[in-house]
């Protein structure tokens, strides 16, 4: 087996294992940590896909900021004790497990991925550097500038919304 494939399987094991542990765990903190493992292995996947900038941003934003925020809220509300959340609707795991098995198989069956088995083109290795991403994102000839500005407005709305929500009523 090629080394790249071995690496893929190791990372995929970590990634899926983290996701499974997150879904099955009843303890929110355990759950969040499993998701961090999943996110970190996804960042490693991005590096193997020549997207170094996205990989770094994935670690900084998801693992470094979003998941720390999750942990902060879990600890702030002190939801550590598992008995806080009562188990109800026990028939759902069965149904959703079926869904989880069926869903990828359906995708395979329709042959969505059929045309994508070939090796990736070799010219892609320079795609993910900071300079390449920046030149594409801010290029005046490409259509990404307006969405970028719109994103900044979205973030501003999120900041204002979070402050309004979290403020205690005077």
């Amino acid at each position: 087996m090629a080394p790249a494939l071995v690496l893929f399987y190791i990372l995929a094991f970590l990634c899926v294992g983290g996701a499974v542990a997150m879904v099955t765990s009843n303890n929110p903190v355990r759950s969040a940590l499993s998701l961090v493992i999943s996110f970190l292995s996804l960042a490693a996947f991005y590096i193997t896909l020549d997207a170094q900038f996205i990989a770094a941003v994935q670690v900084v934003v998801y693992a470094g900021a979003i998941m720390v925020l999750f942990l902060f809220v879990i600890m702030l509300l002190n939801l550590g004790a598992p008995e806080v959340v009562k188990k109800t609707r026990s028939f759902l795991p069965l149904a959703t497990t079926l869904l989880a098995i069926i869903f990828p198989m359906v995708l395979f069956g329709f042959g969505v991925f059929a045309g994508l088995d070939g090796p990736t083109p070799s010219g892609a290795s320079k795609l993910g550097t900071v300079g390449a991403v920046g030149r594409t994102l801010y290029s005046p000839t490409l259509p990404w500038l307006l969405p970028f500005e719109a994103t900044s407005v979205l973030l501003l709305v999120a900041v204002v919304g979070a402050i309004v929500l979290a403020r205690r009523k005077a």
């Binding site: 170094q52 990989a55 770094a56 670690v59 900084v60 470094g64 900021a65 902060f72 600890m75």
Partner: peptide, 25 residues
């Protein structure tokens, strides 16, 4: 010698808080 050196440092320093948060919890 990677082209994302500074981002890597930021990522490492932001991951460093996990040890403290986990110890506290």
């Amino acid at each position: 010698n990677v082209n994302i050196g500074l981002l890597y440092m930021l990522a490492a320093s932001s991951l460093g808080v996990y040890g403290i948060v986990l110890a506290g919890w």
